[in-house]
Design a protein around this nucleic acid. Sequence first.
DNA 1: TGCAGAAATTGGTTGGACCATTGAACCACT
DNA 2: AGTGGTTCAATGGTCCAACCAATTTCTGCA
Lengths: 243, 243
Amino acid sequence: MTDFLPPIQTTARDDAVLKALAGFVRQEALGPGEKLPTERILAERLKVSRNTVREALTRWEGLGLVERRQGSGTYLKAAVSPDMLHMPLTLSGGNDFAGLMRTLEIRRALEAEAAALCAIRGGKAEIAEIERKLDIMEDAFRTRAGMSSEEDWEFHQAVYRASGNPLFEQIISAMHELFHRFWEHPLGVRDFGHASFPYHRTIFDRIAAHDPDGARAEALKLIATVEDDLKRGAANLELSDRR
Amino acid sequence: MTDFLPPIQTTARDDAVLKALAGFVRQEALGPGEKLPTERILAERLKVSRNTVREALTRWEGLGLVERRQGSGTYLKAAVSPDMLHMPLTLSGGNDFAGLMRTLEIRRALEAEAAALCAIRGGKAEIAEIERKLDIMEDAFRTRAGMSSEEDWEFHQAVYRASGNPLFEQIISAMHELFHRFWEHPLGVRDFGHASFPYHRTIFDRIAAHDPDGARAEALKLIATVEDDLKRGAANLELSDRR
DNA sequence: TGCAGAAATTGGTTGGACCATTGAACCACT
DNA sequence: AGTGGTTCAATGGTCCAACCAATTTCTGCA
């Protein structure tokens, strides 16, 4: 039988709006951070109601593609192309300690693989960039006598980028946001991340030596120290926590 | 200096609507497939405009939490709890060969880690369940003289479940959907997955022996064979493909 | 009883209005 | 020159009331 008779579209205005807008972004070669037309202009140009435009933009906002600032405008937050795949993950129960440990297990998996890929595919330029971030991080560590989560994060991002697979950065960045939202402040550990410090250089060494298995192993060790720190912090918290 | 002054929130109506709705779903113990109140009723009860309700529902729809059917109603599509974490991923250019290989690299990372965790934490019952799926799969393989993606997938899901971390199943399931949407039919490889067959049992053996590193290694081998198959299929396709 | 058509229900769209925030231009004062 | 306050237009956020389109339910006839 004719297996493929696509259902006719009598109403899918907002979807059409998104398609048109994706085309527009492509046409104008808009990149992240740039401002796109106001809702009123879009509504007028596309011959749809402003509400419909808003529904479409709400979708994109929910997908993290776009950011709306009242009184200012709507801005592109990520590259957008007509052939995107959306993979909305909703993770239930992530705001307690167990949830954090679960996300960390995901991160361990991705971190190890990214480091390994990096050792395989990393070119001279990428490796140099990683080393630069590493130097900055070690410098900050020495001057401030403590882990700096900002520089630390920069280092890891450089590794993800050098892996040649943008998905690593996308997924871990999303998790990183969640991580911070719940755990940046309440955690009572003072020297958080202190133990993980030396492994950054060992990871880099294995990557620079193009030794994927070694890089994978070192990355696993690094995450293990973070898990330990976290467990210690949770234990500290137990002593004073109510409820 | 005061390093942390979080921006205050003056307006967040639609977000408040979602929170209220999540609470309602919890209160009424609504599960997937059940119908939730009409937009008009929600607007009236929550004392907000129907437009605001619609924006909120549009968000949930985009996240795949809810399905709207015109003339019928709005239905829950997945379990929803007030403490969910949303992690929308948009993979640009995922419908070509390179995109598929990228998702496979993510899967390799998660598959290996899940197998390792499974070897550490898997109890008797979980391991028995995995073995059951493995037997079913091997049986299907013998009778049909070829890989059955359905039974294969069941086996892997059992491993993810036994890992003790639901995130593995959630993430890989989402990717699995994408995988199928684009590659189920067009791929011309006949014996797809044939080479990966023996590794299913070796993975299981390492898990049953509670050998995390061994399980990780076997899982890596399995994905490697899939990658090879895929590359071969892509090469075949090249011969007849235009554009 | 069975079923076709009417009526009610529900999400989708429209247009118009007003509010809250932002940012730029302008101005007064130091 | 620069600091701070005011005004004002632009922009996203919310609201309302009505109508459209798809679906479900009801009703009355055969």
